[in-house]
Design a protein around this nucleic acid. Structure first.
Length: 502
DNA sequence: TTTTGAGTTGTTCGA
DNA sequence: GTCGAACAACTCAAA
């Protein structure tokens, strides 16, 4: 059976049947349908997901493929460059219509540009939708028709634009593929799974796929959503939504998530609970803002949004980067975070800020190094969120934290992990250290240390840097950089000299 | 064009 | 122990 004019849906980060405008439109068209996913193994840099993220992608594709089969179709997987694969497909099905949801990522944008050229050349119809964001990013602009660079006015504008239209229902029946000869490579041939079995920790805490996303949302709305405003900053409590990887791979649309939270909020009368739902909606808007910024400022993946920061005198040094990556800095909350990341592919948001502040401010290492590490290790690695987050902490991005806002890893630990449960979980060598000392073991009386079987410098490292001095060094570096009075590099190396004595 | 108000997540110091 | 101010200066966005 061949058709003269099938539909091709190009899936990228929208692996779902529910609230997927491109898929729904293609189904409505009624013609035979090809559900296409293209894997490009030659992608480099941020085009290639990290190992943790590839693990998720594998399982997400498997789950999505199952869902498509249940609806009467199947996932066609091909390897190569997206547009070349499509071009090839168009030879077999010359009058196809192509459907896709817009990607805000630079690579996705490049694919879209090439795709539009191809469509033009082949006289093929394309249908673009906006399923990855609440609102098409090109439509939110300031009065002077420029993109927003500040969250609050963006947030106001976004709320004014949002219609409370219900999300599209999940597609239940999909027209079959156009012909039995449509070839797909097996999922395993993408080699997304790591050969060593370090994913056990990840396996335990996540269920990739559309069903897993819905379960996670239900669980969140049942309880933690109500205490979110208060407890979301507590890494020792399980009160975040953990929706980030599901959102990243599009297993749940931001629109559906937004809608579900709104509904829960309306059903709930308690003022305190409403506050929590609002706080969470605001977080969804931050995710939207990140997508939006990446769409309008694709260069921010590698360079600061405010480009004069290119001249900032970051230190170029690899030893301390490695110490940070391994979670051996000697600051318990930082090390706990870095180890949680390594073992589970995830880190609590508050701790992401603390560890990022430590890298960029205490160690004065370039935010790009941290962003790359997070990209490689996070199961929810998302280019937009990662870029915005790191630049925010470093002070060179949208709504950047002021340069004098430097997280104190001890204060933050005491405040957000008051009993030290988070630290004890991920830094077991400190497990027996009493709470008053858990966030600053180097100040613990020797007897207490001995009783806890801790020998600083042997069983657990001494702090790699004195925070107070590191803070002053960062303040000075930023102040001098801002003034631009002296050549930043020369004045800075002098400063480094004083650091050597610490 | 100019002016004005405001800006996710912090820390420290001194009263 | 608690609280408010200072930490700098700049850019954005709207009036």
């Amino acid at each position: 059976m061949t058709s003269s004019s099938p539909s091709i849906v190009l899936f990228q980060t929208d692996l779902r049947l529910a609230d997927n405008p491109a898929l729904s439109a293609a189904v409505r068209r009624g013609q035979p349908l090809i559900c296409l996913y293209v894997w490009d193994p030659k992608a480099t840099g941020y085009g290639m997901p990290g190992a943790a993220s590839r693990w998720w992608l594998h399982h997400s594709l498997q789950s999505f493929s199952d869902h498509l089969q249940a609806a009467g179709n199947d996932l066609t997987i091909r390897i190569g460059k997206t547009v070349e694969v499509l071009s090839h497909l168009l030879r077999d099905f010359p009058k196809s219509h192509i459907f896709w949801n817009q990607s805000c990522e630079p690579d996705g944008q490049e694919i879209e540009r090439d795709l539009l050229t191809l469509l033009e050349a082949e006289k093929v119809e394309g249908h673009r939708f906006y399923g990855n964001t609440l609102v098409a990013p090109s439509t939110i602009l300031t009065q002077t028709h420029n993109p927003y660079r500040v969250f609050t006015p963006f947030w106001k504008r976004l709320q004014a634009m949002l219609r409370s239209s219900p999300p599209l229902p999940a597609v239940r029946k999909i027209p079959p593929q156009p012909s039995a000869s449509l070839k797909s490579v097996p999922l395993d041939s993408l080699q997304l799974l790591p050969t060593i079995h370090w994913t056990q920790g990840i396996h335990k805490s996540w269920t990739p796929g559309e069903k897993g996303a819905q379960t996670a949302l239900r669980k969140f709305l049942r309880a933690p959503a109500k205490v979110y405003a208060m407890d979301r900053d507590r890494p020792d409590l399980p009160h975040t939504s953990r929706m980030s990887p599901h959102l990243h791979f599009g297993e749940m649309s931001p629109g559906k998530l937004w809608n579900a939270v709104q509904q829960a909020k309306q059903k709930n009368r308690k003022a305190q609970d409403k506050k929590s739902y609002d706080a969470y909606l605001r977080q969804i808007a931050w995710r939207e803002f990140a997508q939006y910024l990446l769409f309008h400022f694709p260069y921010t993946v590698h360079e600061p949004l405010y480009t004069d920061y290119q001249a900032f005198p970051w230190r170029n040094e690899t030893d301390s980067l490695r110490t940070w990556q391994q979670g051996l800095t000697g600051f318990p909350i930082v090390d706990a975070g870095m180890r949680e990341l390594w073992h589970t592919g995830w880190m609590h948001n508050r701790v992401r800020m603390i560890t990022a502040s430590f890298l960029t401010k205490d160690l004065l290492l370039p935010w790009q190094k941290g962003a790359t590490w997070f990209w490689d290790t996070l199961v929810d690695a998302d280019l937009a969120n990662n870029t915005l987050g790191w630049q925010w902490v470093a002070g060179c991005g949208a709504d950047a934290s002021p340069f004098f806002r430097i997280f104190n890893p001890i204060t933050q630990g005491i405040k957000f992990d008051p009993d030290g449960r988070y630290v004890r979980k991920w830094v077991p060598e400190l497990a027996d250290l009493p709470s008053p000392w858990i966030h600053h073991p180097w100040e613990t009386p020797p007897l207490v240390l001995a009783e806890a079987n801790i020998s600083l410098g042997e069983t657990y490292p001494q702090p790699m840097i004195a925070h107070a001095a590191a803070r002053n060094r960062a303040l000075l570096a930023y102040r001098q950089f801002k003034k631009g009075k002296s050549s930043p590099s020369s004045s800075f190396s002098k400063e480094q000299g004083t650091m050597a004595c610490l």
